[in-house]
């Protein structure tokens, strides 16, 4: 195996310890609630800042390797900053047979990023999800929590345009 030697430069995110304390408090400072703690951190920062994880390690007394393993195992988490708008393309079977793959391609082309990546201006992150449970409306995408159904290439691009116009 190979690792990065020394301490690489990463963006230092100023962390809100009051927020983290509150999150830990609500989750009873229980390592069993780790996944939900990470979700709450992700909800605030859109990703998992390293400083926040260090803080959790300190407070919960769990090894960082466990947190890191969980953060890389579950799809809900990202260790790099994500965009203001997180686009999730549903690749469930119902959406797949109705052409979700093509929608994903056209969004990749439009935003000039691949699945899992974020645009340089930190506006959009493109992700895929195994099923959003809106199968009757397939193909479906969500932008943050809002769902858009019955899409084709053109309609999907229009949805994105709507967000591009927003500041």
């Amino acid at each position: 195996m190979t690792t990065i030697k020394g301490e690489p430069q990463v963006k230092q995110e100023p962390i809100d310890t009051a927020y983290l304390d509150n999150v830990l408090e609500q989750n009873m400072q229980d390592p069993e609630n780790l996944i939900m703690i990470l979700q709450d951190i992700s909800a605030k920062y859109n990703y998992l800042p390293r400083e926040a994880l260090n803080y959790v390690v300190e407070r919960l007394n769990v090894p960082m390797s466990l947190i890191y393993s969980a953060a890389t195992f579950y799809k809900a988490f990202s260790l790099t900053p994500r965009g203001k708008y997180i686009i999730n393309v549903c690749l469930g079977t119902a959406c797949h047979v109705r052409g979700a793959g093509k929608i994903k391609e056209s969004l990749e082309e439009r935003l000039n990023i691949h699945e899992g990546e974020t645009t340089e201006d930190l506006k959009f992150t493109l992700e895929t999800v195994r099923c959003l449970g809106c199968c009757a409306l397939g193909p479906v995408i969500t932008v943050n929590e809002k769902a858009y159904g019955g899409l084709d290439r053109g309609k999907a691009l229009k949805v994105i345009e709507q967000y591009e116009r927003e500041a």
Binding site: M1, T3, I4, G6, M64
Partner: peptide, 8 residues
């Protein structure tokens, strides 16, 4: 198999 954040 990895270390946290892929660093030593």
């Amino acid at each position: 198999v990895d270390t946290p954040f892929h660093i030593q």
